[in-house]
Design a protein around this nucleic acid. Structure first.
Length: 355
DNA sequence: AATCCGGGGGT
DNA sequence: ACCCCAGGATT
């Protein structure tokens, strides 16, 4: 009987903890306003949730503030130039998120009158909004009783119920537990509370069980298995690929750059022309230079790791005359070129060329 | 169900 | 070197 009573008390235990320990974030409302029932701006909640996909709060904060300063409303964002948005996103990674961010803003303006729908099914239809984000916006922005399941919640549930099934197979079971726990009152605060708990106390390594509001009911803590949970199926090793990029600067200072194709790696981002990137067992590819010139190899190479492979890039540089006609890419005037608009691997190549 | 898709920070 | 992170789209 005591177990049932404890189970029913779990949400309130966590909400009481959250009322005291909620982390401050630019897209949240403060504790005073929260008590008055003030909801956060759905635009800011959505923006933060897109940026927070596979990205830490510390990394997102500055990008978020920059975006909402440049584009305070979804209408402002919908009217922005694609290149401006992609440039501001540079360095944050997973660039499909930025393309979908713009698509979504424009759909919200054209099909929803410039306001995010307070409707889980409608949110789920929007570009870049999947099961997690639809639940997050529904609960956090609109206080609707939907359950978020992110890496934090998975870890907390796996420990709270001492579930040893490895991820991702365990996801349905973890979702069942998370849904059963979601309270009808304050579901938005509750959703953020579980994630805050996972991000601060119920951390992947060395969780601080001693100060956890769910210390007593936690099955893994009782069993002493919390450090090994959640279990995960092993992932395969990353292959190594090689390639070459060409950095051409015209005599007037303009740089030869190209916008990468919309789909695929670094899609829609600015980059240096270059070869394909191929597995290391093949010869190092040089490709075809984007413009006729006297190319020279830079000392050293660029090393970069993507989600599923390591890349080693040879960097070639050349000065070209004003009348040069490239077979690939466009010369971008020196004053329009911002290295910060480049994705990190391309910025590394630029940095190498600048010594 | 598997694979693709970045980058940074912690350990 | 490996792991983790407020996942979604595509095949």
């Amino acid at each position: 009987m005591r177990e049932t009573a404890n189970h029913d008390a779990l949400p309130d235990l966590l909400l009481d903890w959250y009322d005291v320990h909620a982390r401050e974030m630019p897209w949240r409302v403060g504790p005073e306003a929260r008590k008055m029932g003030v909801r956060p701006d759905p635009y800011r909640v959505w923006m933060s949730e897109i940026m927070l996909q596979q990205t830490t709060v510390a990394t997102v904060r500055d990008y978020f503030l920059r975006f909402v300063t440049l584009w305070p409303t979804v209408g402002d964002l919908a009217a922005a130039e694609d290149a401006d948005v992609m440039g501001e996103w540079a360095g944050l990674g997973y660039y499909a998120r930025a393309r979908n961010l713009l698509k979504c803003a424009r759909v919200v303006v054209t099909e929803h009158g410039g306001a995010f729908p307070a409707d889980h099914a409608e949110l789920l239809k929007l570009p870049g909004i999947g099961p997690y984000t639809a639940a997050a916006v529904s609960s956090i922005a609109f206080d609707l009783p939907y359950t978020v399941l992110d890496g934090n919640v998975e870890r907390v549930m796996a420990r709270l119920y001492d579930i040893h099934t490895p991820l991702p197979a365990a996801k349905p079971a973890l979702m069942d537990k998370a849904e059963a726990l979601t309270p009808p009152a304050r579901p938005g605060d509750y959703a953020q509370a579980v994630m805050d708990l996972g991000a601060t106390i119920c951390s992947p390594k060395s969780p601080a069980c001693g100060i956890c509001p769910w210390r007593d009911p936690c099955a893994a803590r009782v069993a002493g298995t919390q450090n090994g949970l959640p279990k995960k199926t092993p992932k395969k090793a990353k292959p190594v690929r090689h390639g070459t990029v060409y950095l051409a600067q015209r005599e007037d200072g303009a740089w030869l750059l190209e916008t990468r194709p919309e789909k695929g790696l670094l899609g829609g981002m600015l980059g240096w022309p270059g070869s394909d990137w191929v597995d290391t067992e093949h010869a190092r590819p040089q490709g075809t230079p984007p413009v006729a010139a006297d190319w020279s190899d830079l000392n050293g190479e660029v090393r970069h790791t993507f989600t599923h492979f390591h890349l080693m890039l040879t960097v070639k540089t050349a000065q070209v005359p004003e009348h040069a006609e490239p077979r690939r890419g466009t010369f971008l005037p020196r004053e329009q070129f911002r290295p910060s608009d480049l994705p990190t691997v391309m910025r590394k190549a630029f940095d190498l060329s600048q010594g």
